[in-house]
């Protein structure tokens, strides 16, 4: 590889195309070590990437959103086909005149459960509704079936570059497009489930804050007042008497959800009690 290529690769890595550069160099290496032409080497390396994804899929039941194997496959597709072609493949996938139907049996319960297991281990034991996990399992099954159909298509194995083959046979590109769309759907489910859980946390925080705030609105003034009195050592008998009355009045709320755990009724009152007691002893 010449100096110019090295500089160009470095520049591409700097703009986030490291995996694409890696694919390009892997193809060159494959050409050299296997003494093959560029088109065949490119096809073999691309299929290697596909097989790695299929392996992940069959061992985990799902391609995770942070799958390195899928990132490498995506980079390979970017390098071979470019973004414009891939956009076209996605459009073709939605066109029934281009996309060839494929029979994919519905996911079995164990397959759906593997997806549920993936969610449970990534989201603290929580899982989305059944329809979502089933859809993810169905999409994964479809991706697997489409990859197999794509890799074993005799037209792909023919002469010429893979890109030119797909230019001639748009149904093959549509298979790739369908794979992208299915993967996107799975990622979307995962992203929105994360958002859903974040909402639960937001509401739990809101409730806690509201309860703290209501408690403080009513009781902070008396606590602060008695604290000021006690700190200054003024009217100690009064401070002690007022604290007693305050404790008596607030005690009936101590078991309430709104009050339990609030800073005001926990540490503040305790500190105030110690303060008054210490000043009285001195």
């Amino acid at each position: 590889m010449g100096f110019k290529d090295t500089i160009e690769d470095l520049g591409r890595k700097m703009i986030g195309q490291g995996d694409e550069v890696r694919f390009k160099n892997d193809v060159l290496e494959y050409e050299r070590t296997h003494r093959l032409g560029h088109d065949e080497a490119e096809r073999n390396v691309l299929f290697d990437r596909m097989r790695n994804v299929e392996l992940e899929l069959s061992s985990n039941g799902i391609i995770s959103s942070d799958s390195k194997d899928f990132d490498l496959l995506q980079a390979a597709l970017n390098e071979v086909f470019g973004s414009k072609n891939q956009e076209q493949y996605s459009k073709d996938a939605a066109d029934p005149a281009i996309f060839r139907s494929i029979a994919v049996p519905p996911s079995t319960l164990p397959e759906v459960n593997r997806v549920r297991g993936y969610y449970a281990s990534n989201f603290g034991g929580k899982t989305p509704p059944f329809a979502v996990t089933k859809d993810s399992a169905d999409n994964m099954k479809m991706i697997q079936a489409l990859m197999t159909r794509f890799e074993t298509d005799p037209r792909i194995a023919g002469a010429g570059s893979i890109e030119s083959t797909l230019a001639l046979h748009s149904d093959l590109g549509a298979d790739l497009g369908k794979i992208f769309e299915a993967k996107k759907a799975v990622e979307r489910h995962e992203r929105l489930f994360g958002k859903d859980l974040a909402f639960e946390q937001t509401m739990a925080n809101f409730k806690k804050t509201a309860q703290n705030s209501l408690t403080e609105m009513v009781w902070k003034a008396p606590v602060d007042y008695i604290t000021t009195m006690a700190k200054k050592g003024l009217f100690m008998k009064s401070a002690s008497g007022l604290l007693g009355s305050l404790m008596k009045e607030t005690a009936r709320f101590s078991g309430r959800e709104a009050v339990a755990g609030t800073k005001l009724f926990g540490s503040s009152l305790k500190a105030l009690g110690s303060l008054v007691k210490n000043k009285m002893i001195r």
Partner: peptide, 18 residues
């Protein structure tokens, strides 16, 4: 008296809120 009043108002508010 003030504490008692606060207690009653607070109790009602907490009940309503919860």
């Amino acid at each position: 008296n003030d504490f008692k009043k606060r207690g009653a108002v607070f109790g009602e508010a907490v009940d309503t809120f919860e």
